[in-house]
Design a protein around this nucleic acid. Structure first.
Lengths: 337, 337
DNA sequence: TCATTTTTTGCATGCGCAGTCAAAATGTCA
DNA sequence: TGACATTTTGACTGCGCATGCAAAAAATGA
C-alpha cells in the first residue's frame, strides 16, 4: 500500500537537496533547468506529489477557500456554487463547504470550523450568518467576500447583480404592459437583495406615478410564498400582475395561481421573477425575469478575493453587475412595440 | 490583526506543558480535571483554537473528505450533497469539493488534486471518473465510497437505492394501470443506476408477459431527453406510458408532451420518473415516481466511509436501500383499487 | 586572466501540533 | 507508614515542506 513519497526521497534519488525539490514544485522559484529536469524525472519515477497540507503549514497559505452556504432549495445557489468552485479550481484553490444549517443555529460553530481550517478566504453565500462571521474574520485577518448580498459595513467586499436597476426594469416592463394593480411577493427583508430589488421596483413604479397595489411576504421559501400568493388572490380585488422576488418563489406562486385558483398566466395575471435560473426557461414556467450574470459574478468574486489574499491591503470593493431583462411568456407584453 | 495563538502560548499562560494543552483538546486523552480547567481558562482568555492543518500534519488524518461531483443540473445531487455535507459535519469531518468538469476532461487532474490534499476518504457522486479514480485511490490507501452508483469491482463500497426493485415497482404500477404500449426514456447506459432501473422495469413487464414498446435514450440530459421524447411521440403509434429514468429528464419529457404535442398527462399519456426530487411534488409536475431515500443513503454512506477510515481493514460493502413508490397524478391509476 | 556581479544551491530552522517514553505525582492497600 | 500500582505530566521528536541565509557555482566584464 502507498508509502508516502516525500520530497526527501525525491531529493536523494535526484542527487540534490530537499530544498531543490521544493523549489522545482514552487512556480517562480530560482532553479536551473538542469536540476529541474533531474528532479522532475525522479519525481515522476517515484510518483511524487507535494503534500498540500504540509505546504500549507510551512507557507501559511492553505489554498482553501471556505464557502458558507445554505438554501440549496433555490436552484440559483447550486448553479452559483458550481461556478465558484470551478473558477477557484482553475486558480488552484479549492472549496471547503460549510453548510450553515438552519439560519437560527449558532453561527459560532460554523465560524469556528472555518477558522480552525485556516482557510485563506471566505465566500459567504448564505443569509443571516454574515454579521457575526464578518466581525470574527476581520479580527482573524481573513478576507471575506459576500456573494449576492451586501452589508452596510463598507469594509466588506461584495459582488451582486444590480438589483435596484433590475427591479426598476421589471416595474417599467409591467407598467408598459398596461398593468394597473401591481403586487409584490417579497423575500426576507433582512436580505439586501430583497431590499434593493423592491426599492428599484418601487422607484420604477413611482416614475409612472404608480404605487404598489399589494404586498405579501414569502421570505424566500416556497411554502411561505404560496401562502403569500393565496393572500393576494383571495382579496376582493385581485392584482393583475405580481413581481415575485426570486424565481424560486415565482414557481411556487405560479403553481398556486394555476392549480388552486384556476387562473391563466399571463391572460388573467402576469408574473415576473428574478434570477433567471435554468428552470425559468422551461416551457411550463416560461418566466419573464431578470438574469443574474452568475458567471461574471463568480469570476469577479474570485478575482477580488484572490487579490485580497495576495495583496494584503487591497481596498474592499463592491461590485454590482448589470443583468438583462429576459422577456418570456409569463407576463403580458407591452403593446407599444 | 490576528496574531496566531498557539498551544505553546496557552501552555505558558496556564503554567503547563504544550502536551497538556494538546491533550485537553483531544477527546479521550488522559488529563486531570485540574489541569484541564486551567488550560481551558487560558485558552478561552487567549481565544485559542487548535489549528486543524497542524493537527492533520501531526496525526496523519486531515478530517477532510473529498467529494467528487458534477451534474448539479439534476436537483437530486444538490439535495444529496447537502445531506452528505451535513452528516459529515455532524461527525466532525468536512467536505472538500471537487468538480469534475465535463465528463471527458482528464480525470487525472481531479484525482491528483484529491490526493494532494491528503483527504481521509472520498465520496464519488459523479459519473465516469470512477474507474480511474478508484484504482489510484486504492493504490494510495484511501477509502472510496460510491454514492448512487456501483461498479463491478467488489473491492468498492457503494450505497444506492434498490434501483432494480424500484424499476420493477414502476412496471407493475403501469401494467396494473392498464397501459399497453409502455416506452422507456433511458439515461446513460454507463451508469449502474440506469442499468438496474431498466432491468427491474423489464423484469416487471416480463412478469406480466409484456415487453417494452419503445426505447429512446436521453443520457440523463435535459435536451437529449426532450429529443428522445420527440422521437417516441412522432412515431406512427404512440406509447400510452413512458418510464423516464430520472425525474430530471421526466420534467423535460413532460414539457415536450404538453407544449409541443399538446397532449394531456395522464389522460393521453402517463409519465413516471425516478428519484422523487423536491420538484416532483409541485402541482405542475405532480409526478409519480420512486423515492430515493436520500437521508438514509447519506447516513449510510458516511457511516461506512468513517468505518473504513477508522478501521483499517473493514470489508467493502454494498448497500441498496429500498425506496417507496410515490403515487401522484402523472400516470393513470390502476382501476382495481 | 582575475575580480565582480548574478544566479543557483544546500543547510538549517520552523510551521503547530500529536504522540512516545520516562519521570513525577497521586492513589491503594496492608 | 511504606511498598507498590496507577494516573498524570513534560521533554522531545517528527509530520513534509518553505524559506532566509550564506556558500558555491556560473556568468559577466575589463
Amino acid at each position: 500500500m502507498g508509502e508516502k513519497i516525500t520530497s526527501y526521497m525525491v531529493a536523494k534519488r535526484a542527487g540534490v537537496s530537499q530544498s531543490a525539490v521544493s523549489r522545482v514544485f514552487k512556480p517562480g522559484s530560482s532553479v536551473s533547468e538542469k536540476t529541474a529536469r533531474k528532479v522532475r524525472k525522479a519525481a515522476e519515477e517515484l510518483g511524487y506529489r507535494p503534500n498540500t497540507l504540509a505546504r500549507a503549514m510551512a507557507s501559511g497559505r492553505s489554498r482553501i477557500i471556505g464557502l458558507v452556504v445554505a438554501y440549496f432549495e433555490n436552484q440559483f445557489y447550486p448553479e452559483a456554487i458550481e461556478k465558484l468552485a470551478n473558477t477557484l479550481q482553475a486558480n488552484d484553490y479549492h472549496v471547503l463547504m460549510f453548510m450553515s444549517w438552519d439560519e437560527t443555529e449558532a453561527p459560532e460553530t460554523v465560524i469556528n470550523d472555518l477558522l480552525d481550517y485556516q482557510v485563506d478566504g471566505i465566500i459567504a453565500a448564505s443569509v443571516g450568518v454574515t454579521d457575526v462571521l464578518t466581525k470574527r474574520c476581520e479580527a482573524a485577518g481573513i478576507p471575506v467576500m459576500l456573494f449576492n448580498r451586501h452589508q452596510n459595513d463598507d469594509k466588506l467586499s461584495a459582488v451582486t447583480s444590480d438589483n435596484f436597476t433590475g427591479g426598476r426594469k421589471l416595474a417599467e416592463f409591467l407598467v408598459r404592459g398596461g398593468h394597473e394593480r401591481i403586487a409584490h411577493v417579497a423575500g426576507w427583508d433582512g436580505a439586501s437583495t430583497q431590499r434593493d430589488r423592491e426599492a428599484g421596483f418601487l422607484s420604477g413604479l413611482a416614475a409612472h406615478g404608480m404605487t404598489l397595489f399589494a404586498r405579501s411576504c414569502g421570505n424566500f421559501h416556497r411554502d411561505q410564498a404560496q401562502e403569500a400568493a393565496r393572500v393576494l388572490l383571495r382579496a376582493e380585488v385581485r392584482p393583475d400582475a405580481i413581481f415575485v422576488s426570486n424565481d424560486h418563489m415565482a414557481f411556487a406562486v405560479m403553481d398556486v395561481i394555476r392549480s388552486e385558483f384556476k387562473l391563466r398566466i399571463p391572460e388573467d395575471i402576469s408574473i415576473v421573477g428574478y434570477d433567471d435560473v435554468a428552470m425559468s426557461e422551461w416551457p411550463c414556467f416560461d418566466l419573464t425575469t431578470v438574469r443574474q450574470p452568475t458567471n461574471r459574478m463568480a469570476e469577479e468574486t474570485v478575482r477580488i478575493l484572490l487579490q485580497m489574499i495576495e495583496n494584503e491591503e487591497s481596498l474592499p470593493c463592491r461590485i454590482a453587475l448589470d443583468g438583462p431583462l429576459v422577456v418570456r411568456g409569463s407576463a403580458r407584453l407591452p403593446v407599444d412595440e
